[in-house]
């Protein structure tokens, strides 16, 4: 690693100037997050004071006009939609990355890769519209009413699939050629090399792709709002409509006043907490994996 303090060139003023301006910019980036959290806390404070944390978990339901603010069904909605989509998109994304990198002939791999990149650039509202006019009617014909957890999972999967694929591809590309050559020299087959050498080496990168996918799924709003039905209930089957925390904010924020509005900021806070818990879990997992590798 190159450290500027050990560098004999670091006595120049320009270097120090760069160091301080970088520190300043980093401070701005960091304080933005702190400011957002402070803002969320400030806006949701009235809800905590007038309604209380217990109500969000113990009220009869979500009926803001009757001052009932149960948030747990939407918490479950968010969790199930995210989990479902990651379980569908992660295997698909990883295997398509492996396919592009090691199996597909070049004339196919290149356009396929471009296609995935294009998929990553499609705005979420387009996915939502597609889900609303194509996917939901299809599900409705099979298992009415149609807008459901399943529709949400499918649309989310299509949205996070390119993220997982591209990040996995990038980490596969960084595997040292020497490891692959050594494995080939040992007489291992292609699948054995992928399974025993490449995937373990690229694990950190693959995890990063999955984390980014989960983060996008947690925060997705517009597409989910259009295909999930937005009924406030904990889903008991895949075909039940659900409402996520993000959809709740988007649906009602423009029309909310007083405690109702403040409770929507509490939903935002819950989302934030979920992301933080998830990042801590992910870091823990990565740490353990790294530890396992050194042993």
């Amino acid at each position: 690693m190159i450290s500027s303090s050990n560098n004999i060139l670091s006595h120049f003023h320009s270097d120090r100037f760069l160091l301080w301006s970088l520190r300043f910019l980093a401070l701005i980036a960091g304080s933005l997050l702190v400011l957002i959290v402070l803002f969320l806390l400030h806006e949701s404070l009235p809800a905590f004071q007038h309604i209380g944390l217990r109500s969000f978990f113990a009220d009869e339901g979500w009926y803001p006009s009757e001052e009932l603010y149960l948030l747990t069904p939407m918490l479950w909605g968010t969790i199930w939609a995210t989990l479902g989509s990651i379980m569908l998109a992660a295997p698909l994304g990883i295997s398509s990355a492996v396919c592009i990198q090691y199996y597909a002939p070049p004339f196919l791999a290149k356009p396929y890769r471009r296609l995935v990149e294009l998929l990553a650039g499609i705005p979420s509202v387009v996915f939502g519209l597609w889900g609303l006019v194509v996917l939901v009617p299809l599900i409705a014909r099979w298992q009415p009413p149609g807008p459901s957890l399943l529709a949400g999972i499918l649309v989310l999967s299509v949205m996070i699939l390119p993220t997982i694929t591209l990040v996995t591809l990038a980490s596969l590309a960084h595997i040292p050629a020497s490891s692959i050559h050594s494995a080939t020299a040992l007489g291992l087959g292609r699948w054995a090399i992928i399974q025993r050498v490449i995937l373990p080496t690229a694990k950190a990168g693959i995890f990063t792709g999955i984390f980014l996918g989960v983060a996008r799924a947690l925060g997705e709003t517009m597409a989910i709002l259009m295909v999930c039905g937005n009924v406030v209930q904990a889903p008991s089957t895949l075909f039940d409509p659900i409402r996520t925390l993000t959809a709740n904010i988007a649906l009602e924020m423009a029309y909310a006043l007083g405690n109702h509005r403040s409770t929507l900021f509490v939903s935002g806070l819950f989302l934030m907490v979920m992301v933080v818990v998830f990042v801590i879990m992910a870091e823990g997992l990565r740490h353990r994996e790294a530890h396992a590798d050194t042993r």
């Binding site: 009926y63 006019v133 409705a140 807008p147 009924v231 409509p241």
Partner: peptide, 23 residues
Amino acid sequence: NRQIQAHVVIGDNEQGIKTVEGN
């Protein structure tokens, strides 16, 4: 609103029309 047993909750008019169109 508590008595209503809805299957879909919509935001604007156009979303409702699209939903009926598809179902």
